[in-house]
Design a protein around this nucleic acid. Structure first.
Lengths: 218, 218
DNA sequence: GTCTATACCCGGATAGAC
DNA sequence: GTCTATCCGGGTATAGAC
């Protein structure tokens, strides 16, 4: 078996098992036996379980942020051509969601699994994953936040950043539990929801939150 | 040492350590040595680590939902006296946030630590904890959701429930990371934020999200 | 350079002595 | 009710086979 095979077999098994059970609930022994490789292969190729977790995220986040950056560049160029045009926060969010996730799907990477892993990343990591993501992909995040802030000149910076975190929370929590929430709504109302439809619900809701009038200090 | 002391010493130590490090990162040996009790005491008094986790949440959630229920009852009675009055989603959310958290603080239980633990509960994909919370406190949650839905007759049920999850995500995510976000904003803008001020920002933002016009199906 | 077997040590759980 | 001893599963390091 070539090195590339072993590495990818481990990543494939780890990605699915982590998304299904969480990080600590998934043992290296389960991963390696699922992948059909030796236990020590994880330590040899990745160094530690933490670094394996980071590698799983890297395989999602690198194409994801590449697509995001491409879309941000396209919008920035468009804006410079016609600067008088009204910025549509709703439209900005929805096209970003769509482009970034569609890009993942095109490469055969399951967007729902990605969102599930992202949900885990925000709490189940005792910091190492957060630090890895921020140091590796922080520039794209800040660029996205900057464009969004520019589209909301009437909102003061502190309020904007709190609302940005509110939006991130709404996005990550609801999309990371997409399958569970969808199942509940399907049972209660017989209404099926696709990921695309949910993003089409989320974008205007998040936009309404961001653009809400800022209450005076009381 | 009396049984009550042992149980409470374990709960006190576990609550602080869980909030600081997460569930799996906190060993029973650390908890018991911090509490000054024997390792086997946890298994004897609680049965397992999972049940200890549930007991920590129970100590927060029982007074929390009691306060929530009291406020919901007060509002319902008020509504029956003057049914013509316009329902204010913003005001509803803020008074609920305030009442439930203030009630915790009055009993000497730290609301920020509670929010941090709640964040862990929703993301560390501990199925047992989710099931425990739903079975134990689901009735209060459904009552809260019902009052909120009544205040939003113009929003169809499926959109309402998605938005409810968006709101829960925004609330739990941002409040569970309150200290971290607050530190970033304080450094970048020199603006300190209290938990109360943040709730005063969150309530109108969440209300704007819930009350946003529902886009037509495309 | 890759892979495997194995030997740690830590953490949760439990049986049985007291 | 409390403590000691022990078991078993999990992450990691390493020696050595290929």
């Amino acid at each position: 078996m070539s090195q590339l095979d072993t590495v990818n077999r481990i990543l494939d098994a780890a990605e699915v098992l982590f998304a299904e059970r969480g990080f600590t609930e998934t043992s290296l022994r389960t991963i390696t036996s699922t992948a059909g490789v030796n236990l020590a292969a994880v330590n040899y190729h990745f160094g530690s379980k933490k670094e394996l977790i980071q590698a799983v995220f890297e395989r999602f986040l690198t194409p994801f942020t590449a697509n995001l950056d491409k879309e941000l560049t396209r919008r920035q160029a468009q804006l410079e051509q016609s600067p008088e045009e009204q910025l549509q926060v709703d439209d900005l969010l929805q096209s970003l969601y769509r482009v970034a996730l569609a890009g993942l799907a095109k490469e055969g990477r399951d967007p729902k699994r990605f969102m599930g892993l992202l949900g885990l990343a925000y709490t189940q990591s005792q910091g190492h994953l957060r630090r890895f993501i921020v140091s590796r992909y922080g520039a794209s995040y800040r660029r996205f936040a900057g464009q969004l802030a520019n589209a909301l000149p009437q909102v003061d910076p502190v309020t904007f950043y709190w609302r940005l975190y509110f939006m991130l929370g709404a996005t990550i929590f609801s999309l990371s539990s997409f399958d569970a929430i969808e199942a509940i709504l399907r049972e209660d109302f017989g209404a099926e929801s696709s990921l695309e439809e949910t993003l089409a619900r989320l974008a205007p809701a998040a936009a309404a939150m961001l653009t809400a009038p800022v209450p005076k200090e009381s």
